[in-house]
Design a binder for these strands. Sequence first.
DNA 1: CTCAATTAAATTGTGTACAATATAATGGAA
DNA 2: TTCCATTATATTGTACACAATTTAATTGAG
Lengths: 144, 144
Amino acid sequence: MEKYDVLKLDNQLCFPLYAAGKEIVKKYVPVLDKLGLTYTQYLAMMVLWDGDGISVKELGSKLFLDSGTLTPLLKSMEKKGFVIRRRNEADERVVSIFLTDEGRNLREKALHVPETVGKCAKLTPDEAKQLYALLYKLLNNLSE
Amino acid sequence: MEKYDVLKLDNQLCFPLYAAGKEIVKKYVPVLDKLGLTYTQYLAMMVLWDGDGISVKELGSKLFLDSGTLTPLLKSMEKKGFVIRRRNEADERVVSIFLTDEGRNLREKALHVPETVGKCAKLTPDEAKQLYALLYKLLNNLSE
DNA sequence: CTCAATTAAATTGTGTACAATATAATGGAA
DNA sequence: TTCCATTATATTGTACACAATTTAATTGAG
């Protein structure tokens, strides 16, 4: 064991996290392309399909993203006709995001996406479950 | 269990991977700032500390990055005085990357980085080991 | 009620990422 | 030897991601 071994790429936990994250997002690209979505937009749609009319802030807290990322993202989704951004009447500071009919219809077309990409991971259900649990534990620890 | 449950954010494996990756990189930023490095530049330095004089291509295959990312990254690192980019004499297509003395000295100053950031993860050694193994398994499956 | 502090979005600037394309050097087949 | 396919890097264009700042609306202490 050498002094500088702690600085070897192979000894980092963060690197495979960073690399695997990027690589799996790449698997989504061709699949989501057919729906007219980028990966980040797909994440936003998943939140909105689960319940729209939420604010940029609420969306951001679920996705770990801020307005600097979301504002242009949502504008682009609005231009594509998937969502509508509307200033809240009760509190003009807040922008609420609503799905259009087209955005709502996209849900059906996206149903196959998780399995299509999930197959690429080639993990056993048990491994996937373990990984999921560890990642959420880490994520919670990091945002404390 | 509802039809659309597969599209819930909470049922995705990819999302905590994406989110945890981003969150842990954020922990590096203030630490690496003192060394004058970004996170991606730090990854590149780890590879180079382990052995410099390698090509852009070799560096990219270790980091899962292409020349579109690495060329500007390495130019910026060269401007800061950490590396030198030199066309290979035997094969003019190849650019080899060498550490400067300043770049080499940075290694000592970076020794504390992994532990400083590692503490934020707050995982037991066993959990970290499990996560590491699963992430590399996933990474290998994805790049097959 | 009033104004300073707070809050929500938007904007600005920097730095990745990567697909697609361009450029230039190399190597191999005929 | 010639030239076509391949290879390595660079460039271009698009899309995040986030820190820092700005703008505008709201709230709460006095």
